[in-house]
């Protein structure tokens, strides 16, 4: 038990989290207008259609922005600090928040290519980023 928050899947998001547990990154797309959206919702925020679909996303992206968190928000993250919080632009055209792991925090920079790996957190796998160079 780490005490860190784990996601509680709901009707919008359970396909996403189930795929994570199979080490797959999927993304919601609109059948009507083709919009790719993250996070998953009950409607397309571009065209208002409710005809949505899931597809596999390429598990690669780029750091859009990043910060080294020195002061953890809650006791559960204290041990990890300093850690990198980042917004990752996935190659398939959507943005997610992740930690950039498996590298020195100060080595992470905007524009850095990353690949998605999955961290097991109390039975739910979470997408995380690590430098593509690690591969």
């Amino acid at each position: 038990m780490t005490g860190k928050p784990t996601p509680t899947p709901n009707a919008d998001t359970s396909p996403f989290w189930e795929a994570c547990n199979e080490d797959r990154l999927i993304v919601q797309t609109c059948r009507s207008c083709g919009h790719v959206q993250f996070y998953p919702r009950a409607l397309c925020v571009k065209c208002e259609s409710r005809d949505l679909n899931w597809r596999d996303a390429k598990p690669e992206g780029t750091v859009h922005s990043c910060t080294v968190v020195h002061r953890a928000p809650t006791p559960a993250f204290k041990e990890d600090a300093p850690y990198v919080l980042a917004l990752i632009d996935l190659d398939d055209g959507f943005r997610m928040m992740m930690n950039v792991i498996n590298c020195p925090p100060e080595s992470v920079a905007i524009g850095m290519p990353v690949r998605i790996v999955f961290e097991d957190r109390e039975g739910q796998k979470l997408p995380q980023a690590e430098p593509s160079a690690n591969a």
């Binding site: 784990t6 996601p7 509680t8 998001t13 002061r71 953890a72 928040m97 957190r121």
Partner: peptide, 15 residues
């Protein structure tokens, strides 16, 4: 933060 897509990553307001 978003309970599923931000909080698990240790987001804070300053971060």
């Amino acid at each position: 933060g978003h309970p599923q897509f931000e909080q698990p990553y240790g987001i804070s307001i300053p971060a």
